[in-house]
Simulated assay, not measured.
Amino acid sequence: MRESARRALVVAAAAAATALLAPGSAFAWGDDHGEGAGSGGSANGGASGNTLTARAGQSSIAIKQSGGESSKAPTGSLASVDPTWKPPACWYEPVATPEQLKGAVDRLKQNPNKDLVAVTPTLSWGEELMVDYYEKGKSQDARDKSYKNYNLGRNGMFWRGVINKELKDDVAAWDCERLLFWQDAGTVPDDPNAPTPKTLAAYAYNRIRVPDTEIELKPEGRSTLNLPTWVWLDKGVFQEVRVRAELPNTNLWAETTAKPVALHLEPGTDDAETYPASGDCKINDDGSIGTPYSKGDADKDPPCGISYLHATDGKPYQLKASVTWRISWEGTGGAKGDLPDGTFETTQDMTVQEIQAVNR
């Protein structure tokens, strides 16, 4: 087990008698803002929205997507071409002002048998431990100085770990079990799991939504044996998609950009040829893919297309079309970099007839 998780479990064992005997929900500050909302709060311990819920550990990162407006098609998420890549399993975020923390403990005093305060993503404390640690200054974590009266009057916030819900079963998710701790305003924790622009960029990656791959075909949905089916996408159908991630109460932000770079075709049968042979149709300089079919092109090989060598027999082939999106990011302080390419795939039926001549 990782060292940070081990320390947290030692504290948890000491706290169990108080924390676990008090049934009910855990205090958390704010909602899950992962889909574009911002965080809010007031000096008396209340925050806007669903203030004190049991959803401790969820992120307050605000997400906003732009780009790709020309496509009205449904959207989906990207799959990384690198099966080993994954975003951070956990990180730390500011969650409460001194006034908000005091307000939460005051509510504990009024409801000692009902509510708990989340001090890590997985551990919650009752009134006695909260008062000892954050009001009276009886520290239980050597990494943090003792707190007196919730640090009222100081400029900063208390931070707590957040677990990436998509990686909640990853062992690395235990690395952010540090007890709710203080951080001065304008600074980030001196901790390996402190948030960075790259953290936000990776978080944004999994929230990119791209348009469905609706390719143009000639002939449409019905191919002719041994004659090529032309495939293309008009320019402007696929545009760059940008997702901006901002962490409230910090100056941290990142914008992750997905740029379409190629279309890959899989005919749905081994009895077929693709154009080009790799099945990878490059995006042209004007943003289009392939070339639209024109009369007189029947005897030409398309720059992007398929030729089926065996007719279907009642059951259509499943033509798969996937667009590759190149991912880059930039963020606070001029930070920038690349992330693994992503793909988005759709499937459509293709019926192949044996007629040797067709009016195109």
Rank of each mutant, 00 (worst) to 15 (best):
A321R: 02
V210K: 10
D338C: 01
P189Q: 04
F27M: 07
I355R: 14
A272K: 04
D280N: 14
I355H: 12
Q348A: 11
Q318C: 01
C304A: 01
Y92F: 15
T224I: 12
N164R: 06
K148L: 06
Y205G: 03
A12E: 13
A12I: 14
D270V: 13
R2F: 15
P340Y: 02
M1R: 09
V188R: 15
I327S: 12
A204K: 09
D141K: 02
G30A: 07
D132R: 15
E3Y: 10
A104P: 08
L9F: 12
T250F: 03
L167Q: 11
D212N: 09
C304R: 00
G46R: 03
T196S: 07
V358E: 03
T250D: 09
N284Q: 07
L9K: 15
T120P: 04
E177Y: 14
G49Y: 05
E220P: 07
K300Y: 06
G24D: 05
E255V: 01
R244K: 15
D270E: 14
E330T: 13
P121T: 13
P340V: 04
L263T: 01
S139I: 01
A245V: 06
T53R: 09
Q58P: 15
K165M: 08
I306Q: 05
G30E: 02
I163L: 10
Q140L: 10
Q65P: 03
P112M: 00
